[in-house]
């Protein structure tokens, strides 16, 4: 599904990531951890072609990212749900319309079922906020809305960057339970987080691999997790 082979990313003459080798198989669940600034977000960006590797190879859905056209990139992104730390929306349309936008851009607007959208909003705790504009949402609400938008297309892969960073413990558990449920449905999940408690709790629910970025390199986390 996603394959990195000796991939690296260099910015301004400094190695952010180097010699990364990783394979995300269909249906797998991965956590990515590491200290702040270690390159977790950069690695996620490499996984959906927001960044190009400066060395090595990255393949997304069997396609080498260097050989992809812009249309290819758009096509693979429809199969990947991304939740950013700083989630961005179209600020002039409602949260509900933002949620259904991925369907609209992929020509599947006729598949929009407002009942399903309501269920999704309810699941992420935004039942009352569907008609609000994104700038009216708090940080936590924006993250939940971003997660809802990421999964509305039923993507094969979900990349989440600190998806529980701005929400309380109860909501964090609920969001992780949603991701676990999606994983049981066969979706591949990669979550970048520095919250070790969250990782420990989730590992009791699902078989997850924990990867750590340390000194620009990717390692399998130890038994302490």
């Amino acid at each position: 599904m996603i394959e990195l082979k000796n991939a690296g990313f260099n910015y301004g003459g400094r190695d952010i990531l180097s010699d990364m080798t990783l394979r995300l198989s269909p249906g797998s669940f991965h956590f990515l951890t590491g200290p702040s600034g270690s390159g977790k977000t950069t690695l996620l960006n490499l996984c959906y072609q927001a960044l190009m590797p400066t060395t090595g190879m990255v393949r997304i859905f069997e396609q080498d990212v260097r050989a992809m056209t812009r249309d290819d990139v758009a096509r693979v992104r429809r199969r990947i749900g991304v939740v950013h730390q700083n989630c961005q929306f179209l600020d002039h349309i409602s949260v509900r319309d933002n949620l259904t936008l991925p369907l609209a851009v992929s020509g599947r607007e006729s598949e929009v079922d407002q009942g399903n959208v309501d269920d999704l909003l309810s699941w992420v705790g935004l039942s009352e906020r569907g008609d609000a504009l994104p700038p009216e949402l708090s940080g936590g609400e924006r993250q939940r809305a971003a997660l809802a938008r990421a999964i509305i297309m039923s993507p094969d892969l979900i990349l989440a960057d600190e998806p529980t960073g701005n929400v309380d413990w109860e909501m964090a558990q609920r969001l992780i339970a949603l991701l676990v449920e999606l994983n049981r449905m066969g979706k591949t999940i990669l979550i970048a987080t520095h919250d070790l408690n969250l990782i420990r709790n989730t590992k009791s629910e699902v078989s997850a691999r924990v990867l750590r970025i340390n000194n620009t390199k990717l390692q399998l986390a130890g038994a302490d997790l």
Partner: peptide, 16 residues
């Protein structure tokens, strides 16, 4: 620019 960024993130083609 932000609108274009969001649209690309969710898989919009340039033609869209």
């Amino acid at each position: 620019g932000q609108v274009i960024g969001v649209l690309r993130l969710i898989g919009a083609r340039d033609v869209y």
